[in-house]
C-alpha cells in the first residue's frame, strides 16, 4: 500500500485514450459504408466526351446506366473490337435494352418508377448510329429521361 501511495504522488494517472481508436474506426466504417463503390466493372472502354454546360446527376438510386464503347483488350478475342453495349455486368444487344429497362423499373419502388433516369455513358468516339438505336429503344421502353454523361472542360 505504501508503495502505491508513493507512486500516486509522483505522477497523475494518465488519461485513458484506449477508446479513441474505436471511435476513429467507427468513423472509418461510417465513411466506408456511405461512399458508393463503382457501379460495375467495365467491360467496355469509355472515355466520356467533354462539355461545359453540365448538370450534376442527383439521386443515384434512380439512375440506371448504359455503357457504350469498344470492348476492353481482354474481351477483344471473343467480342471483336467493334463498339458494344454493356448493361450491368455483361455485354448486350440493342434489342435487350427494352427488357432491361422494364426489368429495372419493375424492381423500383412504385413512386420512383416515373422518375427513373437512364444515364448514357458512351465513349466519345462512338458512332451516332448506335446511340440513335439506343435512344429509340429507350423511347419504346418509355425511359424518356436521359442523361448524356460528359466530363468537364473549358471552352474551346
Amino acid at each position: 500500500m505504501a508503495q502505491i501511495r508513493k507512486k500516486e504522488k509522483k505522477e497523475a494517472p494518465a488519461l485513458s485514450t484506449s477508446s479513441l481508436p474505436d471511435i476513429i474506426f467507427m468513423l472509418l466504417f461510417f465513411f466506408m459504408a456511405v461512399t458508393t463503390m463503382k457501379e460495375v466493372t467495365y467491360k467496355v472502354r469509355v472515355t466520356t466526351p467533354s462539355a461545359t454546360e453540365l448538370q450534376k446527376l442527383e439521386n443515384k438510386s434512380l439512375v440506371r446506366y448504359i455503357y457504350v464503347g469498344e470492348p476492353m483488350p481482354e474481351f477483344r478475342e471473343q467480342f471483336g473490337s467493334s463498339t458494344r453495349i454493356q448493361l450491368n455486368d455483361q455485354f448486350a444487344d440493342v434489342s435487350e435494352i427494352e427488357s432491361f429497362i422494364t426489368l429495372e423499373r419493375s424492381a423500383m419502388k412504385e413512386e420512383d418508377q416515373n422518375v427513373m433516369t437512364v444515364s448514357l455513358k458512351a465513349d466519345k468516339d462512338t458512332k451516332m448510329g448506335i446511340v440513335t438505336d439506343i435512344k429509340q429503344a429507350l423511347r419504346r421502353a418509355y425511359a424518356l429521361k436521359i442523361v448524356y454523361q460528359a466530363g468537364a472542360r473549358k471552352a474551346f
Binding site: 468513423l27 472509418l28 462539355a51 454546360e53 453540365l54 448538370q55 446527376l57 448524356y148
Partner: peptide, 28 residues
Amino acid sequence: MADISFLLLIFFLVTTSMNVSTGLTRRL
C-alpha cells in the same frame, strides 16, 4: 493507435473518389 487510425481514415477519404457523374440532361 488513434493517430494510426486517423491516418487510415484520411487515406480512405482521399482515395475513394466520390465519382460525381455529370452530364447533359435530355427528355426524349
